[in-house]
């Protein structure tokens, strides 16, 4: 008996599934994307650029960039260290640690902001001390950094742990045996192997750091031009009936999301190719 090809599905299946997919994607992906850009440009290009030139929009963009500039490197550094400790050594409680890394994924963004209110707010555990020091964390920029760092913490570690686990530790051990220092081993042996995966993690961290809304909304004082990040500012503009301006700012974040997706797709292909080469040897 000859082997029937696996794709021998009944004829109706492919068109049906394609149609269903197209329907779903149209409603949930294409239509929203189209709406963002068409609404942003609904009052013409000059309105669009003027909306983005406002002092407060500028401040929001700056704060968003600053938040990413602080949270991304810190979370990258700790994500790498965490992945190193988890994948290169065995120790008790490792699984607990891996689970802890995923906590920020699982909790509601509202909770992510709330916990810092309970820690640093006026009623929080350190509220009294902070008040004496005349310093505020919640309702101030540092609160935004903290909430964002919390929310974006898992991405780098989550990308690296499976990757570094697969790669094993033979190469590093060889380097150490040959007399290389720990840091040198990391930068010369480990990093080249994980750089694309690392970049992938960084890109995701960055996208989320710039786009977080719920957690930041809870800790921000919503002061225009001061503690409003871009997502918060979209909310403000929307509340001022400046819909085209709200969508203009939203379109910037959407562009960022699209760029993120393109880079991600490219990186995925590179990583897949590298893995394939590795297995062919």
């Amino acid at each position: 008996m000859s082997i029937v090809k696996i794709n021998k599905e009944p004829v109706w299946i492919k068109p049906t599934l394609l149609a269903l997919s197209f329907l779903f994607l149209s409603l949930f992906i294409f239509l929203p994307l189209f709406t963002i850009f068409s609404e942003a440009l609904s009052r013409g290009a000059s309105y669009y650029f003027n909306a983005l030139k406002e002092r407060e929009v500028f401040a929001a963009i700056r704060l968003t960039l600053l938040t990413a500039a602080i949270c991304v490197p810190i979370n990258t550094a700790f994500g790498v260290m965490l992945a190193w400790a988890i994948t290169k050594f065995s120790f008790k409680g490792k699984n607990v640690l891996i689970t802890l890394v995923e906590v920020p994924f699982a909790v509601s963004p509202v909770i992510s902001g709330l916990i810092f209110v309970f820690l640093f707010g006026a009623i929080g555990w350190f509220g009294g001390i902070l008040d004496k020091l005349n310093y505020r964390i919640v309702f101030n920029i540092p609160g935004i950094f903290l909430a964002t760092a919390f929310v974006t913490f898992p991405f780098v570690a989550k990308e690296l742990i499976p990757l570094m686990h697969d790669l094993g530790k033979d190469d590093e051990e060889a380097a150490i045996t040959l007399g290389a220092s720990g840091l040198k081993t990391f930068f010369r042996v480990t990093l080249p192997n994980i750089k694309w995966g690392l970049l992938y993690g960084i890109i995701l961290t960055n996208a989320r750091a710039m786009g977080e809304y719920g957690a930041v909304a809870v800790v921000s004082g919503l002061v225009r031009g001061k503690t409003t990040t871009m997502p918060l500012y979209i909310d403000i503009l929307y509340g001022e009936y400046l819909f085209a301006a709200a969508f203009a700012v939203a379109s910037l974040l959407t562009l960022l999301a699209l760029v993120t997706l393109v880079i991600k797709a490219v990186l995925e292909r590179i990583i897949a190719k590298q893995r394939k080469q590795k297995f062919e040897f």
Binding site: A122, D131, R136, F139, L222, R224, K226
Partner: peptide
């Protein structure tokens, strides 16, 4: 600088710092 929101929530924000 302006901050706008529901009045009760805004008051709580000021109490909060």
């Amino acid at each position: 600088n302006q901050s706008h929101g529901g009045s009760g929530g805004q008051a709580r924000g000021v109490i909060e710092g």
